[in-house]
């Protein structure tokens, strides 16, 4: 008895987006099937992993997350370099948390100076992630875009509140925007339309569908991402045919369970392995939902995901 596999016919294709510039530039996207459904389509460009670097010394990280970077956490450039040199990072994501007006509120100039150092320290593609305050991000990301003209940074989150301002500098100074919307397929589509109307070329748009951690709302992101991918591939929704970015490291490592020590949570096993597995499992699910770029923290979690990617994409 021979089974005839019922195949989905895909009418769409995810756009290919070039990340960064020069020899180490990467390309993501290009899928013509649901993630890893290689029996009925292509996924010739691998999803990529960006390693997190913070612009100020983290204060509330559990030892498991801190240990691999303990010697560099106070120097973002050295941190980025360690990620690339020691942990083989293919991308860096600079998280500009210290610019948050509700926190340290560092100025755009300071943020730009830090960014400049990181950009000069490594040659891999770099994501610049703001503090998620639309007004402050506008100021900060504009300055960075100007100072790093032509480097094709991935800058975000770009929201409905600031897409004009950030979109404009992205066009003018040649960067890629990360279009961020709160877990809603129609809002994601609308923002992509607006960016297109503004003049941001299709080759410079990535979708951030908003990411939650395992156990903390991951299911919402998972389904919205599945819906976005479905619309893009099978429903001719051209304005959703962009690769997706998931900023998951910080979401996972701020959860209670990723932070608890063995004493605080004796039933939860080894704290390092637990944190690593929570991050990797979150990443794994996001990959299945359609993520093209993962922003992650722990080198071991990243190693596991790379291993899984190799298996899933094996020829």
């Amino acid at each position: 008895m021979a089974l005839e596999i019922p195949k989905v016919s895909y009418s769409g294709k995810i756009k290919e987006i070039v990340l960064g510039k020069g020899d180490k530039a990467l390309t993501v996207g290009g899928e013509t099937s649901y993630p890893f459904y290689l029996f009925e389509g292509q996924m010739s460009l691998k999803p990529r992993i960006a390693m997190e670097v913070y612009d100020s010394t983290p204060e509330d990280w559990p030892p498991a997350a801190l240990e691999p970077f303990a010697d560099v956490v106070s120097d973002p450039a050295a941190w980025a370099k360690k990620c690339v040199d020691t942990y083989g990072a293919e991308m860096i994501a600079l998280q500009l948390v210290s610019t948050d007006p509700n926190g340290e509120n560092r100025s755009a100039e300071e943020a730009a100076a830090v960014t400049k150092k990181v950009v000069e320290a490594v040659d891999v593609p770099i994501i610049i992630w703001g503090c998620n305050n639309a007004e402050k991000d506008t100021e900060v990301l504009r300055k960075i875009a100007e100072d790093c003209a032509g480097r094709n940074l991935m800058i975000g989150p770009v929201t409905e509140a600031n897409y004009k301002q950030i979109g404009a500098v992205a066009i003018g100074y040649e960067h890629t925007v990360i279009a961020s919307t709160p877990i809603d397929i129609n809002l994601a589509k609308q923002l992509n339309i607006l960016l297109g109307n503004l003049g941001v070329p299709d080759g410079r748009i990535l979708i951030d569908p908003t990411t939650g951690s395992l156990g903390y709302g991951l299911e919402y992101c998972y389904s919205v991402m599945e819906r976005i991918r479905m619309a893009a591939l099978t429903q001719e929704d051209e304005r959703l045919q962009f690769p997706m970015v998931c900023n998951l490291g910080k979401e996972v490592w701020k959860t209670k369970e990723a932070k608890q020590s063995r004493e605080e949570a004796p039933k939860l096993g080894d704290p390092v392995k637990r944190g690593v597995l929570m991050e990797a499992a979150t990443a794994q699910l996001l990959l299945l939902a359609g993520a093209d770029i993962l922003i992650m923290r722990h080198p071991e979690a990243i190693g596991l995901i790379k291993d899984m990617l190799n298996d899933l994409l094996a020829a």
Binding site: K164, A168, V169, G172, Y173, L198, G199
Partner: peptide, 12 residues
């Protein structure tokens, strides 16, 4: 052009 042109795009 680039510096000022950005202002034309974003509406400032």
């Amino acid at each position: 052009l680039r510096k000022r042109g950005v202002e034309f795009v974003d509406g400032t």
